[in-house]
Amino acid sequence: MHTLKVLSSLLKINIQMSLAYRADTIINILLNLMWLGWELLSLSIIFNNTTTIGGWGLPELVALLGVFRLVNTMMIALIWPNTEKFNQSIRDGSMDYTILQPVNSMFLVTFSRITVWRVWDLMLAAVLIAVGINMSGDLITPLQILTFILLAISGVIVIYSLWIVLIALTFWFTKFDNNVTIMQALLDSGRYPVSVYPVWLRIIVTYIIPIAVATTIPLQALRGDLNLTNIITFAGIGIISLVVATRVWKSGLKRYSGASS
């Protein structure tokens, strides 16, 4: 309850901040629509030349684009702004004030900045997923949709946990301040099913920087490619990664000694 209250007041602050830049918001929405047009054009170019890519058809790629945009929005609206604030607070010592608050510090560090108008992006992503599912006709059962949602949430948690580990490393290595660039760099791989990539790249984006866990895997659930063991494993990975990330965060926090002391 307490956490929810904090979250709602954080949201309020962020809405007020974004209202100060209304015109920028409109420009950004237009730019975003332009990129969407480009993404759809590139899909149409691909499927003018082939019927499947890595075994997947156009409907699935549209749904995958939606899932990719979900992760991308999280990157832009949550991960980047909070990482910037966090890195700054480690450098100048203002992290002190965050720790002094009677709220879970990990929660406060990861949710204090939210680019709220990106909610629009989430709706767009949901539409793309719905259109993709609709295009593939009645091949999909409600159960598959359910596992898809479950694994998408689990995938997002994996990305969130990786982010926490990456920024927590700053407690040990203060100069490590381009901590999340590596996630951003590999993010584009989420646009296509991992089955098209060479093995080494597939290993990197599945196990090391697991973009695919949040993009390809949920889509595989939607296609009915996964059996029960797979589903339980991937849902379990989400929970385990969050537990590990919390541990890493806590032991990192113990090393924090302020910037001036």
């Binding site: 030349n49 082939t50 660039t181 584009d188």
Partner: peptide
């Protein structure tokens, strides 16, 4: 170095996508 990585990934992804299409269909146009 990070910037370089950033730069490399997208062409490599396109390379992988198009070679996989070309291999599956023999050739593309």
């Amino acid at each position: 170095i990070m910037y370089l990585l950033y730069w490399l990934v997208s062409p490599i992804i396109h390379l992988a996508v198009w070679t996989s299409i070309a291999n599956a269909n023999g050739s593309v146009s």
